[in-house]
Design a protein around this nucleic acid. Structure first.
Lengths: 208, 208, 208, 208
DNA sequence: GATGAATGAGAATTCATTCAT
DNA sequence: AATGAATGAATTCTCATTCAT
């Protein structure tokens, strides 16, 4: 029998442990095929114990989304807001995106979200409302600002915000789905992309 | 009882009907959560009938991949090979990509492939080998040619080939996952992307 | 499509063909595991055709018992009744038993009857009433006669009748169950048995 | 919900309970027609519980054979080996055979083995190799010894060993198949048989 | 009469969830 | 708190039977 988690700290550690185990299992098998047993084993605990922390498999899934998704958003937002220029902000974001893809669970998370998107439309809606949309809107606003300031000449900031995310999603997905089959140089792809955008958005020379 | 399919033609029609039903169900629920019953009902047939045409749920899935994936590849390849210039080829491909996203089952297919990627690694490997890789390599070769001819100045054709696909995948995924929550102007995104690439790859003026 | 059976003769031939196929299939798989498809294939016909001749799988089974069991009984009974002495009758019956085991379907039939005995108690009761019991009673009566006539000194004719059958059943079962694993010389076993019985039943010499 | 079996002892008891239930069900319906549900109900447990102890219906069957068949063999062998004379050994074996038929599950087991013999040829081969053959060979060797010692004059010890088993199998089968229809005095049959054999094998008087 | 496609009831097996220990 | 035995709903797949051709 595993040591009991008596303090609140110990309990929240065990919760995190379970969520991390769950992500791995959901990633490997998908929500439906994932057995509570698998999650328990991945965490080194027993089946019954999972139910002490989460009421059902669906609750584990929901908690996973809530716990893992949001911290990243905040980071991106901080990055965008604190960078002196958008050009720098974009370049810094690239570095962060690379980290996100290679060093975090984001690709696994992305794969799980995509895979279960039709099964849990509320979760998708929620995720859109709390993560995707705020981030895109923040980007859009920042781009509007720099257009006004003349830093960049972005023709359509709405599309531009999405355009920025394009290789991040591509890379995340590649990492989840194809990384075992063929590697991809995410950093190169991301920076080629930013440079292309900056080229396209370069302010027109209006001096002459 | 449904009309019996006695001729080979009628049987192959019914097979197609079932595969189309299966794609919808796999898309909605994922492979695991999809019940054979669901597929049968979607096709207006009974459970047992599905087993006359396919030996198991997995066989339905495999047949789906085989049937739906490959035709699109050929189209893309033709497009690339017949366009007089790469610039035109890319612009035409965008039109095709838009069609692919809005008018075909590609987004559903993409979502299913991503969702089940860990469960069927052989199918993913197969898909990579027969669809993804040949397409990317063809693009890469075409880009190498135009670099040689001076039409474009692509710094890294390997990355460039992937870069081209970036918004296609993004759009396909958006269509699958978020289209009910928020629409996205795929044509605008795709063409903004191509224009950015063409800007970045514009041959340097070496006359002066 | 197989030739149609138009005449009554042709129909009854086809019925026999199906029953023979059924015996093989029931023997190999047991009643439950036998598929109508198997029986049809064994007979070189199609599934639906079996239903033209028999209303259900159970009806096939019933017809099998009725058709195949009874002829043999009549033969045994004739043998016993026409033999001039019981001693000769027993020896002749042995020859017949050997034939029954090696050259007929009796062992298959026995195996099927035993295997399904609990599933079809009425069939077993029927079989007992129409085949087993009459034969045993006839034997018993003949033995009573020869005891009276002084030909043999059988202590208990009821038991004796059963005792006679003992190696026949043993051999039939061995043939069904173990013949592929190890052969058994049925003729030798049967005649050793008869000789032992004749020794035990030899009339006591009461002359001195 | 039934009491939980937590200790190894309780678990092995439950396993035995299930096997005993399984024998009854397999006997009544045959392996194929037996539903796991039936076995569970016969044991007073639920369907799912059977799968905690045995991985599949086939595994239950195999375990049954392993558990129930072998103990009896040992008993017979001990009997034969410890009896001072073969004559006594045979008479004692008869007592044991009667017990086997009336007081143990042997007849049920025999019926099940016969019924499923074609479906599980490996089990039959196994059973022949581990139970039937060793027993027959032991008998044969003992008979060879007594022929040498002059105790009995057995003409063919190979056949004789089989001849001895003849009424045991007959009785076991009768018990399984016909006992509800008509009783049979097994003890009388068995001892009549032994006496007949002893008569046939009596050493020839060579004194005069 | 013959065929085999279609049906749906039924059985093995799995696994989320409960709860006695 | 932790465990894992027990349960039964749910799912895949099979096959007896029907019936359009």
């Amino acid at each position: 029998m595993t040591l009991r988690a008596r303090t609140p700290k110990a309990k929240s550690d065990r919760e995190r442990l379970l969520l991390s185990a769950a992500l791995n299992v959901f990633f490997s098998k998908g929500f439906q095929a994932a057995r509570m047993q698998d999650i328990a084993e991945e965490a080194g605990l027993s089946k019954g114990t999972v139910y002490i922390y989460f009421g059902s498999k669906e609750e584990v899934f929901q908690a996973l989304i809530d716990t893992l998704a949001k911290p990243n958003v905040e980071h991106i937002q901080t990055l965008l807001q604190t960078a002196p220029t958008v050009t720098q902000g974009l370049r810094m974001m690239n570095g962060f995106a690379r980290q996100l893809i290679v060093e975090t669970d984001m690709p696994k998370f992305l794969k799980v979200l995509v895979g279960e998107s039709q099964l849990f439309p509320e979760i998708v809606a929620d995720y859109h409302a709390e993560v995707i949309n705020p981030t895109l809107q923040l980007m859009e606003r920042r781009l509007d600002e720099v257009v006004d300031s003349g830093e960049l000449a972005v023709p359509d900031t709405h599309i531009a915000a999405r355009q920025i995310m394009t290789p991040v999603i591509f890379s995340g997905l590649w990492e989840s789905v194809f990384s075992k089959t063929q590697t991809l140089d995410y950093a190169a792809l991301l920076s080629a992309h930013v440079e292309a955008l900056l080229c396209a958005w370069a302010p027109k020379d209006t001096t002459s």
